[in-house]
Amino acid sequence: MARRRGFDVTRLPGFATIAILCFVLLYAPIVLLVIFSFNESVSVSEWQGLSLRWYRSALENEQVQAATVRSVVIASAASLIATAAAVGAALATTRTRPWRGQTLAFALVNQPLMVPEVVTAVALLFFFSMIKVATGYTGLWYLIVAHAAFCIPFAYLPVRARLQGMDLTLEQAAADLYATPWQVFRRVTLPQLWPGILAGAMLAFVISLDDVVITEFVKSAGQDTLPTYMLGQLRRAVTPEINAISTALLVVSVVLVMAFFFLSRPRT
């Protein structure tokens, strides 16, 4: 007897063609980029043989070094701040009695996902320039705070998902066994929340590392991060060094994103 099945998208005509086309469009350029990062040639598009020349060149480039350090400092600080804020927000939207404005708070926390980035960037530019005038401070903290702000939803969502998936009776059991609310959090909630927190922090780190738009608007002179440095280079002479840096960034992102998926996997 033929069994009736539900709607099966994979049986539609042309499904395989479209799927393959999508994957090719997504990954072929990246594959090419990676291949050409090992190119000996000075030209970006002409192959002249295998070499690590551009990796060496990028490593020795002091501007690249400075931008890399700056990127890592900003991403580390921003993801730390964003994750701490996200954990607080996630607890407040899952571990409390429903309160007025909870949905609004949820929307506000996730606002950076919805508002066009360039709008936030312009707004921050004005806001920070006012502060700069008032205080005279022109350091890295503007970038760190800006990055922390748009990283919050990326850290918030995995933490919240983890909290919602956790068995509430565990926390009740701890309270039943004389643990104060703080001890319940420290001894029972937090240890189980760690994978979510780590996942959120890593996602925030990658998002910060990758940001161009907001950084471009907010940064002061001499505060290039790796992506804005690369953008600046493209405006001048394009060298395969960019390919090498991109490939290195790609590896870091892929490793972190894979770790994220591994950590946010539901427990079996």
Partner: peptide, 29 residues
Amino acid sequence: APYERPVNTVFQSYALFPHMTVAENIGFG
């Protein structure tokens, strides 16, 4: 509050702490 009551519960789902050993679970209270 629940943590101030000299009353303990055995939960239907047991609610054992998955990140602790048997002995750590028993010693928690």
